[in-house]
Structure formats: structure tokens, C-alpha cells
Design a binder for these strands. Structure first.
Lengths: 255, 255
DNA sequence: CGGAAACTTGAATTCCGTCAAGCGAGGTGG
DNA sequence: CCACCTCGCTTGACGGAATTCAAGTTTCCG
């Protein structure tokens, strides 16, 4: 745990606070697992679900989840972080509110630590409970198997960004990715950037300076507007979309 | 289908060729699903599993699998391929013999086509059958859920490669990735590169020329030896491993 | 108000991508 | 069998774009 304060563990009250009323599981709508949990499990198991409040920069140490867990993000942002031997940092994947992260091997620091990129609250659910629940409920199973492949495709897209896109293209791509995953309504063009420039850079394989410059460049072209440092408005959706799809190669000619 | 010849569909014989004898499902050892298939399903379902023979460059069109399928690679290599609007090619993920690829949304060309990078034979299994099998067999379920997260971690590692590693580091990393996934025994230092330079480049986010140069460079340093164009020997495991973990940054000073 | 951290801006450097040419193995047909 | 072609790979030279390094500037806290 590296943050300034240890994460505050909020245990559910005994009266089954895990019940669905406030969507306390972290999942919304069809994906909510509170009701099926309530139907299938006893109090002890329900109580196994904890809430963690994290500050920006807090890392989740293996001690925080000795058994494999599923994280469900309520608010904020978490990421899987890895460091090369000389200190270079990468953010391998992000999870925004309403999304979940399955880290069944975090204890073995297989390929990264879980870290909060902003003030965040997450639900922790023992993986065994999550799996058992999926076995019991065919509908949930369908929904979560579908989500698992969505996550994989998201990861594919990210690889495509990192592999063959220019910094400008990556940033454009990232802006749309954020917008979609934050569920910003179609007609709203302004939204908040929930993470720092440095984190954006580490997620996109760039330097913070480059992120800054690209933002500035996109703004100068009238594609976006930086309302404030962490408030972004998309001005020209079409133009930005084009760039995101690869209309800004390094040099016009290639193969 | 873009290859020279259409893929040859090899239907299993009626006498349940899907039975486990030859590990005909494509999965080995514990992962073999032939026996549980045989126990749980009737002939019609077993027959739903097809084998496809692909030439290098063959793409699997949606017509080839109208329903979601799971590919199991018997021999060769397949990849998920995507193209940016101006033609840049990326290989988002690779699958080597004994591995499987779950493309339940290929019909929607969500994020790429499946393509063979070498002469390949794959088993196709309807996803519904695969899922049903996992529901019926707790042991298999455990094995495959574990594999799914392994695949995700593999993708994470790959993102780390693409995001913050130099070309030399990526190549070193890739050499080990291949070696591991091909199950090359610990004491064997020589093995075959199953894909072309161009494919390596597209997988690692580099140019074919760079791949060539890095190979040459690593060879000059005595870390590897290119026995032939597609036969590689690792000379200095330790040194190469160090590079893979990030000991060769762009410039010594950073941050 | 003060200090630190995050972000921006500027200038220099370098490394990889680009372009172009050369090489070599494999296949084909005469 | 050899000339020829093709395609994948290698090698070289060069330039530009992103990183690096360094110095501001702003923002956000306490």
C-alpha cells in the first residue's frame, strides 16, 4: 500500500446492505448481481463483499485480497500497472465506474499491480462467490460471458492503438474510448477527464509532454476544446473519429 | 476468403472420430474435451465440430462460421488481424498449436478478421456446445476459466510490450513469448519461427526492416543465433531475458 | 500565502520509419 | 537443368517526429 492513507474498508451492515436497492454491487441494470446474490447466498457470503475507498495512487497489495477477487468499480478509476526494470510505467488496462476487473492471480504479481488513478470506491467480491453465482443464474451467465469477450475486444482495440497508431491517432481514439465507457450521452459533447496527463501517457505509451502537445494541437485544429485541465469538449466528432480510425499516419506513403 | 484455395472442410466420420484417441479436439492433456464431449453429447453435436485446413494468408470470412465458434489450433498459427483506414496492418493476438480463440462476434467484424499466418489446421466448435460442456463438467470449467485469465494476462503483457518497450526489448520479449507458448523444452535452445518477418513486425508494432535489423543486432551481440531464416537459437538466455524486462531503454536517462 | 505537484512550452537530439536498392531461396516453365 | 521471375528478407542512407532535457507556468493543497 503506497498511498498516503490506508484504504478504508467499509463492511456491509448486517442487515444485508448488499441488497439491490442502491445497486450496491457496483453493477447496473441487467448486470446487477444484488438480487440473485440475495436469493442464492446466505448472510455470511453476502458479507464477504467489501467496499474499499481508495485515494489516487493507492495500490492494492496482495494482503488486501489474499483470495482471488473480482473488483467492481463504483466511482473513480482503477488500472493494472506494471513497471519495467528501469522504472518505466505502463497502465495495461483501465476500469471505469460500472466495470469490473477479474484479478484472480494478483497475489502472484503475475503482470501488474492494481492501482487507483483517482479517488475511487470499489466493491470486492471473492471470485469463488462470483463464479458460483454465474453457475446458478443462466441469465447472468449470458450477460457476463458476453461482457468478458467485450473486455477482450477492448483489449484488442487497445493493442491496435499502441501498435500502429501515431500519438495523435491514439489520443483521438482514447477520447472516444473514454466517452463511450463513461456512457456520456450522445448529444453531450463535454465531459471530464478522470485521470492525469501522466496516466493518459502511460496508458497510451506516450510521454506526458506528448499528451499535452497533442491536446493542444487538436484544440488548435478546432477538433476539441479544453474547457479546463480536466474538462474536455469534442467540437468536431466526425473529424476526430476519422483521425481515430487512422487518417493521420506518420508519412502519407507507406506500403 | 482471400487465400489461393478455399479452406478444405474435413468432416468427422460418423463413427465418432471426435473421440479422444488422437486428441482430435485440439486440446492436450487435462484440457482435452473429447472424452467429456463424448460422454455428454450425441452424434449430431459431435459432428458439429469441423476441421479446417488453411493456407498462409487465408482469412476466415463470416460465412465460414455464421454462428459463434471457438477455434482450436492443431498446427500452424492463426491471428486476429485489423487494418486501419489507410491500410496499416496490425496483428492483435496470436494463437499457436494447443491454444484456442473465442470469436463469438466475428460475424460483426467487431475488431478484426481471423487469418492464418502459416499452413494451419484448426478445429471449429460451436460456442454454444463449448459453453454447455463447461457447464456440465466442473473440472473442465476450472481449467478453462483459468485459461481465460491466462489469455487476458498474455494480452496485458503484450500491451506492455507495445506501449513502453523499445524495438529491441519487444523482440527479446517476443522470442521468449514464442518459446514458452510453443512449449520448447527448457534445455533446447533452438526452435522455429513459425511466422514471417512482416507478421512479427505487425504483431510487435514495428516495420519488417526493423525486425530484420534487431535480429541482426542481437546476433552480433552474441545473444541469439539465426541458424536459418526461420530457425532461431538463444545463446545467452540471461542477457536476453534482461533486455526483455527493460534493460535497453531509448536513452539511459529518463524521468 | 507558500510550496509542491501537475501541466505546458521550448530547444536539441536521436532513433525508428521511410524509401530504395540489393540479395537469395523457391517455384515455374521452357 | 537452367534462366527467369517472384517474393520475402536484408542492407544502407536519410529525415522527421517523438522523446529527452530543461525551464517555465498554473493549479491545487494545506
Amino acid at each position: 500500500m503506497t498511498g498516503t492513507t490506508p484504504p478504508k474498508i467499509v463492511s456491509p451492515a448486517d442487515n444485508l446492505s448488499f441488497e439491490c436497492a442502491q445497486e450496491s454491487c457496483g453493477f447496473r441494470g441487467d448486470e446487477c448481481i444484488c438480487r440473485p446474490m440475495h436469493n442464492h447466498f446466505d448472510k455470511a457470503q453476502l458479507r464477504a463483499a467489501r467496499t474499499l475507498e481508495l485515494n489516487e495512487g493507492d495500490q492494492l497489495a496482495p494482503e488486501d485480497f489474499p483470495e482471488p477477487v473480482v473488483f467492481a468499480v463504483l466511482t473513480g478509476v482503477i488500472a493494472v500497472e506494471s513497471h519495467l526494470s528501469d522504472g518505466r510505467r505502463s497502465l495495461l488496462t483501465l476500469r471505469l465506474p460500472g466495470e469490473y476487473l477479474d484479478m484472480n492471480r494478483a497475489d502472484r504479481h503475475a503482470s501488474g499491480e492494481v492501482v487507483a488513478l483517482a479517488p475511487t470506491s470499489v466493491k470486492l467480491l471473492p471470485r469463488t462467490v462470483f463464479e458460483e453465482l454465474l453457475l446458478l443464474d443462466a441469465n447472468l451467465r449470458r450477460i457476463y460471458w458476453r461482457r468478458a469477450t467485450d473486455i477482450m475486444h477492448q483489449q484488442f482495440d487497445h493493442s491496435s492503438d499502441l501498435g500502429k497508431k501515431t500519438p495523435t491517432e491514439r489520443m483521438a481514439s482514447f477520447i472516444f474510448e473514454l466517452r463511450n465507457r463513461l456512457n456520456i450521452p450522445r448529444f453531450v459533447e463535454e465531459f471530464a477527464l478522470p485521470i492525469s496527463r501522466q496516466s493518459i501517457a502511460d496508458y497510451l505509451g506516450l510521454r506526458a509532454e506528448t499528451v499535452s502537445r497533442v491536446f493542444k494541437g487538436l484544440e488548435k485544429e478546432g477538433l476539441i476544446k479544453l474547457v479546463s485541465k480536466h474538462q474536455l469538449a469534442i467540437i468536431d466528432f466526425k473529424g476526430l473519429r476519422k483521425i481515430a480510425n487512422g487518417s493521420r499516419p506518420r508519412l502519407s506513403n507507406h506500403r
